[in-house]
Design a protein around this nucleic acid. Structure first.
Lengths: 334, 334
DNA sequence: CTGTTAGCGCCTTCAA
DNA sequence: TTGAAGGCGCTAACAG
C-alpha cells in the first residue's frame, strides 16, 4: 500500500514493460543478450517509473558496494585534507563512493574504524595510520584489499608514501648551500615513521657536509609547539631551523617576530608539507611540498587496481619538492 | 569451499551453537526473549568464529544503512572542512557512518551526487548547496530525510545556518565604533545567499549610522581576488575593508603589504569565517568566526532526530562571533 | 533470447 | 522461548 509512495522496484518495471524480472535486470545492466526492442521497452518503463536499481540489494548479491573507506587520524590536519580530496575526487571519477572515518588520533578507534568500515565497503585506505607496526601488520590482512599511505612498506598491502627523507635532504641542502652550518631540528611526533626518515636525512647530511652540525629539540606538531620552541631555538645558536611541519614553523615565525628576531636576516626557518597557507606567512615559508592531493589520487589508483583484480604497485614513493620562499636566506655574516 | 577462508555467517554460528538462525539473530540483537544460557552459547560461538553480522544484508532487510551522505561544494574550503569534521565526529559518536561527496562546485554533480548517495544511505546533508532555489526545492523532497546547511529555510527540510547578516553587522559595528565612516565591501560570490545577507547588514548599518558610507567592489572568493583588489580598495578612499572571507582578506593583506600600505595604521581589514590561519597572518586578522564544527554537529543533530522519527528543529541559526585581532584599528587622523 | 528458480545474509512474522 | 518459513530487491545460473 505504501507501494505507491515508495520507490519503484524491479518488479514494477517488469510488470509495466510486460517482461520478467530477469529481463529488466539484464536490460538495465546492458547485457547484450536482450532483444533491442525489449531493452527499449524496459528503459521506457524504468524512466516512467523513475526506477533505479537499489544499490544495497545489488551490493548484497554482487558482493561489492562500489564504496571504499578512508580512515584518517585527524580531519583537521591540512595534509590529510588534501589526501582525502585527491582520493575522493579520483574515486568519484571512477564511479566509487567514499566513506570517511576520522579516528581523531585515537589508536583504538583507528583499529576499530578500519574493521567496521571494511564490512560495508570494498576496501579501506589507511591514511598515516598511528597504530604500531605490529598492529598494522596483523590488521592489514583482515582488511584486504587495503592501501596504506605514509607508512613503511608492509608487504601485505600496497603503500603510497611521501619521501620525507629526500624532502628534508633537499631542505638541508638548500640551507647548507646558503652557507648555514649550524642547524636545529624541531622534532615533532618522535614515534612517527617520518621522524625516523628525517633523522636519516640529517645523519646523511651531517656525514656528507663538512662542518655541519644539527641539534635536535623535541617539541610538538602544532602552531603552539612552534611558539614554545623559540627559547630553545635561540639558545641552540643555530642559524637555521628545520621545523617538523609548517604549523610548527608558523608558530616559530610568530614567536620569533614577537621577540624581534628577524627572519631570515637573523635566522632562517624551513617548514614541511607546504600547507595552503605556507605561502602567505610573513615572510612566506620555505618548505618541502608534500603532494597530498596526488598521494590521495595514487592511493585510489592502488585501490582501484586491486578492486579490478589488477596488480597494484606495491610501493609508490612520491618526492616532496623544495619550495623556496622568503623565510630562508644566507646566515648573517658574523 | 571458499567457506573456510571467508567470513563466518550466521549459519556457521547457529550450527556451532546448536541453535537456529533465528535464535542467533535474536541473541546478537539483544532480543530479551532468549534464554540467557542460549545467549551465552551464541555469544561464545560468535566470538570463536569472529562473527559479525553482515551490515549490507542487514541494510537490505532493515531498510537502513546506518550511513548518511554529506554533499560538499569543495573539500578544499576550510569552512566546509570544519563542517565535515563536526558532522563526522558527531555522527560517529552515534554509531553512524559518513559518506562524503565533493561536488567540486559543479551544479549538475551536486544534484546527481545528492540523489545517488541517498540511495545507499539513510539521509543526506547538503552543505551550502550551490543549486538554484528552485532546484533545491524540488530536490529536497526526493532526498528526505535531508538537512540543509547555510541556505535559506526551505521548509521542506531542517536548515542549519550561520547568520552572516549579524556577523557582518558586528564587524561593521566594531569598525564604526573605532571611528570608521568610509568602508568598502569586497563582494565575492554575488549570487550566494550569504551575499544577500551581507548586503542587508550593510544597508541596515548605513541606515542606522550617521555618515556611514559603504562602497561595493566585486571580486572573487579566494586569496588572489584579495591581492587583485588592492587598487580598487585604495582608489575607494575607504579607511576599512570588509572582505568577503578570510582568504580574500589575507590576499588583500598581502597585496597591501607589497604596496607598503600599513595595516591597520593606514587601512583596516576585516575578514569573515575565522579559518584556522586567520590568527596567524600579520597582522592577525579581525574576523567573524563562523562556527563550522558546531554547524556540522547541529546538522547531524537535525539528521539524527529525523532518523529516529523525532522532530528536528526546522531552522537553527548560529551566530558568528566577532574576533577582534590586529588587522583593525582606528582610522588615521587626517 | 527470455522466463523460472535459487539464493546473497539476515531479520521477523507465524506456529509450535 | 524456539524453530521454520518467507522475504528485503536484485542477479545469475538453468532451462526452455
Amino acid at each position: 500500500m505504501a507501494r505507491s509512495s515508495s520507490r519503484a522496484g524491479i518488479t514494477d518495471v517488469a510488470r509495466l514493460a510486460g517482461v520478467s524480472l530477469s529481463t529488466v535486470s539484464r536490460a538495465m545492466n546492458g547485457n547484450p543478450s536482450v532483444d533491442p526492442a525489449l531493452v527499449e521497452r524496459v528503459r521506457a518503463a524504468a524512466v516512467e517509473l523513475g526506477y533505479i536499481a537499489n544499490p544495497v540489494a545489488r551490493s548484497l548479491v554482487l558482493g561489492r558496494t562500489q564504496t571504499i573507506a578512508v580512515v584518517i587520524p585527524d580531519l583537521a590536519n591540512p595534509t590529510f585534507q588534501a589526501i582525502l580530496r585527491g582520493l575522493s575526487r579520483a574515486a568519484t571519477a571512477d564511479g566509487y563512493h567514499v566513506l570517511v572515518a576520522d579516528s581523531t588520533e585515537d589508536l583504538d578507534a583507528e583499529h576499530a574504524l578500519a574493521r567496521t568500515t571494511r564490512l560495508r565497503t570494498d576496501g579501506v585506505v589507511l591514511c598515516s595510520p598511528r597504530m604500531s607496526e605490529d598492529d598494522l601488520g596483523t590488521l592489514l590482512p583482515t582488511l584486504e584489499p587495503a592501501v596504506v599511505i605514509n607508512r613503511g612498506a608492509q608487504a601485505a598491502s600496497p603503500v603510497v608514501t611521501a619521501d620525507y627523507r629526500s624532502g628534508l635532504a633537499e631542505i638541508i641542502e638548500h640551507l647548507t648551500g646558503l652557507g648555514h652550518r649550524r642547524l636545529v631540528y624541531l622534532a615533532g611526533a618522535t614515534r612517527s615513521v617520518t621522524h625516523l626518515a628525517r633523522q636519516e636525512a640529517i645523519a646523511a647530511a651531517v656525514r656528507a657536509t663538512d662542518g655541519l652540525e644539527v641539534a635536535e629539540v623535541v617539541g610538538g606538531v602544532d602552531f603552539d609547539s612552534g611558539t614554545g620552541a623559540v627559547d630553545a631555538v635561540l639558545a641552540s645558536g643555530a642559524t637555521a631551523v628545520l621545523a617538523y611541519n609548517d604549523l610548527v614553523a608558523m608558530g616559530l615565525l610568530s614567536g620569533l617576530a614577537a621577540r624581534g628576531v628577524r627572519v631570515p636576516d637573523d635566522i632562517s626557518v624551513a617548514g614541511f608539507d607546504d600547507i595552503p597557507f605556507a605561502a602567505y606567512t610573513s615572510p612566506p615559508l620555505t618548505t618541502a611540498a608534500v603532494p597530498g592531493v596526488a598521494l590521495g589520487a595514487r592511493a585510489w589508483d592502488a585501490m582501484h587496481a586491486q578492486l579490478e583484480g589488477r596488480e597494484a604497485t606495491p610501493l609508490l614513493t612520491m618526492t616532496p619538492s623544495l619550495v623556496v620562499r622568503g623565510s630562508t636566506g644566507a646566515p648573517r655574516a658574523r
